[in-house]
């Protein structure tokens, strides 16, 4: 499928940037005329992936988190990348309620939220090298046509 538009964001692993990242990706995604619900789903999934990079990927808030996003006719493809610690056991990390940081009152629902709100979630990670979360969300075309009429 042909790429309609593409963007890349790089920002420091500061928690203040969680809001920046989800709002920036949502603004980019809005070019596809998503519904409010689809937009909220994208914002939430990006927030989860970026929070993971900041809390679990890095120990310091001066590292770099990268987001690549591509727009196609009917979907947005988003990658959230960190070059931090990586995940030893991706299957375990994706389990609902699993958290490696219970002391932070984390719910362990981050990946579950991403999987529920997005149509496809792929995680590639290697200990010591970092983690890449790739998420795809299809945007309902009927909605965009109705809105355009």
């Amino acid at each position: 499928m042909k790429i309609k538009n593409e963007m890349k964001l790089e920002f420091l692993s500061k928690s203040q940037n969680e809001a920046f990242a989800r709002v920036a990706v949502a603004a980019f995604a809005s070019q596809l005329d998503p519904t409010l619900e689809e937009l909220a789903d994208i914002k939430t999934a990006v927030s989860e992936a970026v929070t993971n990079a900041i809390i679990h990927g890095y120990d310091s808030s001066n590292e770099i988190v990268i987001i690549n996003a591509r727009l196609y006719d009917n979907c947005i493809d988003i990658e959230v990348i960190d070059y931090g610690k990586g995940i030893e056991d991706v299957e375990l990390a994706r389990q609902p309620l699993y958290t490696s940081k219970p002391e932070l009152e984390r719910s362990g629902m981050g990946f579950t939220v991403m999987e529920t709100f997005m149509d496809k979630v792929e995680v590639s990670s290697a200990p010591g090298q970092g983690t890449k979360v790739r998420m795809i969300k299809y945007i309902s075309i009927e909605n965009t046509e109705t809105e355009r009429e």
């Binding site: 909220a40 009152e105 719910s107 362990g108 981050g110 939220v113």
Partner: peptide, 13 residues
């Protein structure tokens, strides 16, 4: 206006 899974932990606590 917005909540992600971080909020779940706050509510459970």
């Amino acid at each position: 206006n917005f909540m992600d899974s971080s909020g779940i932990g706050v509510f459970i606590g």
